[in-house]
Structures are given as structure tokens and as C-alpha cells.
Computed example of a mutant assay.
Amino acid sequence: MQKLSEQDIEKLLLRFPDWEYFDHALHVEFEFDNFKDCFSAMSRIAFECEALNHHPNWTNTYNVLSISLTTHEAGGVTKKDFDLAEAIEMIVEVQE
């Protein structure tokens, strides 16, 4: 998988206004109404991660989910990260 240039990343991020690029990764934070809703979204995201065979670095504190995406084998962000970001956006959007 080919690492994307910073220009390509910035262009693709236009479709993901809540996401940021720094430290060689895509980052986002979602806030839910409660822990149950947050954990439910995490569970649905986990199934998508398995299907794509791509796994985020993420943390959960009560109702807040923080996600970082990078492709370790490529040493940065790849199309795979944007594919997962798109799937995550769809899951979270349905949840809201």
C-alpha cells in the first residue's frame, strides 16, 4: 500500500471536515450522548475494521471516542485509512 503525499491527504480530507491530519495519521473525536451509545458505535466500527483488515488506534473515555488512523506498514496515511474513515463516518452518522 502506497503512502499518500501530504497534498493528497489534504485534498481527501475535504470530504471529512471533522478529521485532522498530524503526526502522520488521521485523527477524529466523536462525542455521544452516553457510554452505551459510544460503545455501540465502537462495536459496529470493530466489525468494519475486521472486514477491511485495518485497525485504528483508539481510546474511549465515557462518551468520547478518539480515533487515529495510519497504515504502519506504509509509514503513514494510505487509501486504506480513508476507506476506514469513510466507513466510520457512515456508522457514526447512522448512530446520531
Rank of each mutant, 00 (worst) to 15 (best):
2 Q>E: 14
3 K>A: 12
4 L>T: 04
4 L>Y: 04
6 E>F: 04
7 Q>P: 00
7 Q>Y: 09
7 Q>R: 13
8 D>N: 12
9 I>P: 05
9 I>Q: 05
11 K>G: 00
11 K>F: 06
12 L>G: 01
12 L>R: 15
13 L>R: 09
13 L>V: 04
13 L>S: 07
14 L>P: 01
15 R>K: 15
15 R>S: 14
16 F>K: 08
17 P>R: 12
18 D>T: 07
19 W>P: 04
19 W>H: 10
20 E>Y: 10
21 Y>K: 06
23 D>E: 15
24 H>F: 05
25 A>E: 14
25 A>H: 09
26 L>H: 04
27 H>F: 11
27 H>L: 03
29 E>N: 05
30 F>C: 05
31 E>K: 14
32 F>K: 03
32 F>G: 03
33 D>R: 12
33 D>A: 09
36 K>D: 10
36 K>M: 08
38 C>F: 01
39 F>E: 01
39 F>S: 02
40 S>W: 03
40 S>A: 13
40 S>H: 11
41 A>T: 03
42 M>F: 09
44 R>K: 15
46 A>P: 03
47 F>S: 07
47 F>T: 04
48 E>I: 01
49 C>G: 07
50 E>N: 12
52 L>T: 00
53 N>V: 01
53 N>Y: 06
54 H>D: 03
55 H>S: 06
55 H>T: 02
56 P>N: 06
56 P>D: 07
56 P>A: 05
58 W>R: 02
58 W>A: 14
58 W>T: 02
61 T>A: 04
62 Y>H: 13
62 Y>C: 10
62 Y>M: 05
64 V>G: 01
65 L>W: 15
66 S>P: 01
67 I>G: 13
68 S>K: 13
68 S>W: 03
70 T>I: 02
70 T>W: 11
71 T>K: 01
72 H>K: 05
73 E>P: 00
74 A>H: 06
74 A>W: 08
74 A>I: 03
75 G>D: 11
75 G>T: 08
76 G>K: 09
76 G>F: 06
77 V>R: 11
78 T>L: 14
78 T>G: 11
78 T>E: 12
80 K>N: 07
81 D>G: 08
81 D>Q: 11
84 L>D: 04
85 A>F: 07
87 A>C: 11
90 M>Y: 10
90 M>V: 07
90 M>H: 13
91 I>V: 15
91 I>R: 10
93 E>Y: 11
93 E>H: 12
93 E>V: 02
96 E>T: 12
96 E>L: 10
96 E>R: 15
